[in-house]
């Protein structure tokens, strides 16, 4: 559920970015494409994560995987940096 809410939040960010596209042209579309891709990646790997969590609880052993947190943090910071750039460059 937490991951589902996260990819939904990514789609909301995508929709807000699309609002900018008439003003900045096709270059801006990179951002919604990246956030949509990330949302799809999160959604498509959902089942694997859930299965891993269930197995971890049953076995009483689950190793923390830092890849997901690192990628999400990097994505959010990169999208934020691009957003600041677009805000400053806005007419």
């Amino acid at each position: 559920m937490a991951w589902s809410r996260t990819w939904l939040a990514l789609l909301v960010v995508t929709a807000v970015f699309l609002r900018w596209s008439p003003h900045y042209g096709p270059g801006l579309l990179v951002l919604p494409v990246v956030t949509t891709g990330a949302a799809l990646l999160v959604a498509l790997t959902q089942r694997r994560r859930a299965r891993r969590g269930v197995h971890g609880i049953r076995a009483e052993r689950l190793t923390a995987d830092p890849v997901g947190p690192i990628l999400l943090t990097a994505l959010t910071i990169a999208v934020g940096a691009a957003g600041i750039g677009f805000v400053i460059a806005a007419p």
């Binding site: 996260t6 960010v13 900018w20 947190p69």
Partner: peptide
């Protein structure tokens, strides 16, 4: 394992807060 999973859920809640702030600014 419940601690690891709870920590991950908390991280995701913070990330969604961050995304809400990004979307709000935009």
């Amino acid at each position: 394992p419940r601690v690891t999973l709870a920590n991950e859920r908390t991280f995701l809640a913070w990330i969604r807060t961050a995304m809400a702030l990004l979307a709000g600014g935009i």
